[in-house]
Design a protein around this nucleic acid. Structure first.
Lengths: 340, 340
DNA sequence: CTGTTAGCGCCTTCAA
DNA sequence: TTGAAGGCGCTAACAG
């Protein structure tokens, strides 16, 4: 039983019309007589026909697919963002092709190349460093619409939050609680421009509060983060507050504190950054700078879809700086008074 | 500057050969003379040429794309699994198109229809109920290779763990700790066959331990889960141990306990199910049944890739039951002795 | 309003 | 080893 192909011709024959009419019935229902349309619709339904996306893409040069380049899904920030992208894309009739890069520049390049070959109509990317990215150069060269997410850079269209201001505010809040020894915890600083931006904000906030910033606590390896932090928290000059570059680090810091015998927030205040959902289900609930992860994805999609509709790629001028929200939580409290 | 199209013909001209030769140089490098191959490769590189995926797909009927149907990325279980899928797919030269269904059967159907039209070479799905799924019928009818993930069903190829046995074991361990009032907490039971499977295992485990199972605690809404659980934990006949249908529920249960003034694990033991990574960074670290989420995704991809290579879809006989791992954690302890 | 025609870019016989 | 030709399924001019 060699099943005959389910193409437009087949449907046309069954409906007693031409292929062109079937095509029109699908793409411009108004341009076809109601009676004919019914004929076509019935034939298509009976056969279970769906237009072939590849043929359509080949012919129209539009795939209705958006590429997404992300570091990883193991950090809920990006999972939440991708969820937002997915929903917004679906609402606009787009499919998505995500590619994970593990924070590696070479993988970013490969991802872009792969997605270009796949004929995506646009791309949303989170890169490690927009300044000198070969991947972005390539993209710009191709003239394909793209938007950066989370990254902030004057030369590219970006959906981001002002991480520097947010970090400065976070520090200010900790200072207002009476903390003076506020340390910043970060992953490898070089691996992410967000981390660097947040570090700048931290330094600014410390300066504004008239505090001296202790050395940055860099925790490069996830696997040993809790251990490293525990050791750090046992030093006699340990800080009374930690500002963490992201929520996962903040959660690990809380664990390190507990393992060290410190209670959060009484002995140690912990502030995160990102606003991942699970932070609010912990006890203590995580104090953090919440980014609108879902909306970052959504706005990225909308910017792309609009630009595709109007036929010109988004530019740096289309960048959007979304508001962040300070999320009180329970992991920060007033500093203990000096040992009286 | 009307940029000329970057097609195979163009490359051929520049290399001084025919389009067919360029095609061969890309697809069967051995079937072309080394000298000619160099010519083609150089021309392609200079032009930045990459074969057009849509045209290739149209011609060969193979897209090198796998569809993935998931409930949501907001539960880290699926994010971790998708990460595994993504890596395995990339390793085999496949791209992925994920579609989120919000646990809704109608969305599952749409997702399958959409992915079929997109010419994916195979699909990995997590559905709410395989037994009577219109989506799966459609898929089977199309003869497209597919695998279920997490779902277990004798009529379909599945990558899963024995959730019933695992649940029974979890209960046995709680019973061994001296707990007698062990309640199960679950989301909407009807929304997921996994939840039902785990509930069966719970009942079996209770029976085996000679314990009477209190009524199932169903927590349908995520937003009010902590509140509902807090109320539940204030009842005088509250259990001393909670077996939760998934880790997110377990985490919320721990928070509810704390809010109610109970400490975990001293006053209340909490056991989860899933093994999401973040559970191990909490304090107390989550005791749970860990599933190999990454590997579930990976095996799904490998099964599909193999079946595509051999030209026949996977069958129920190809199902894989992966081992789960009991993860000790810190959220379960011996039951407090009876008030002496 | 509908049909005819041509071609999107590629692969794959078939012939040379 | 290479080239020529046809067609995958669809859409968009252009006729009618």
């Amino acid at each position: 039983m060699p099943k005959e192909p389910l193409n437009i011709h087949n449907v046309a024959t069954r409906a007693g019309v031409s292929a062109a009419t079937v095509s029109r019935a699908f793409n411009f229902p108004d341009k076809v007589a109601p009676a004919t349309r019914d004929l076509v619709e019935r034939a298509a339904r009976e056969l279970g026909y769906q237009p072939n996306a590849s043929a359509r893409t080949l012919r129209t040069q539009r795939s209705r697919v958006l590429g997404v380049v992300l570091p990883t899904l193991l950090n809920p920030v990006f999972a939440e963002c991708l969820q937002g992208i997915s929903q917004a894309a679906a609402a606009s009739g787009y499919a998505i092709v995500p590619v994970m890069t593990s924070y590696e520049e070479t993988q970013e390049q490969q991802a872009v190349a792969q997605l270009l070959a796949a004929n995506v109509d646009g791309m949303i990317l989170v890169v490690s460093s927009p300044s000198d990215s070969r991947a972005l150069e390539r993209l710009r060269g191709a003239g394909l619409p793209y938007v950066l997410a989370y990254n902030a850079h004057p030369g590219h269209p970006c959906i981001s939050v002002d991480g520097e201001a947010a970090s400065a505010e976070a520090v200010a809040r900790l200072a207002a609680l009476g903390h003076r020894r506020i340390a910043m915890v970060s992953g490898t600083l070089a691996a992410s421009d967000r981390a660097q931006q947040r570090y700048r904000g931290y330094l600014r906030g410390m300066a504004a509060a008239g505090l001296q910033a202790p050395p940055l606590v860099e925790v490069p390896f996830v696997a040993t983060a809790v251990e490293a932090l525990s050791r750090y928290l046992q030093t006699p000059t340990r800080p009374t507050a930690l500002f963490c570059s992201n929520d996962l680090l903040a959660i690990r810091s809380m664990r390190a504190a507990r393992l060290t015998g410190l209670s959060v927030p009484q002995d140690l205040a912990v502030m995160g950054f990102d606003g991942i959902a699970i932070g609010q289900d912990l006890t203590p609930a995580l104090s953090t700078i919440a980014q609108p992860n879902h909306d970052i994805g959504r706005h990225g999609v909308e910017l792309l879809v609009q630009s595709i509709a109007r036929g010109s790629p988004p530019g740096a001028g289309d960048s959007l700086c979304l508001p962040y929200r300070f999320c009180g939580g329970e992991s920060c409290a007033a500093a203990a008074g000096p040992a009286a």
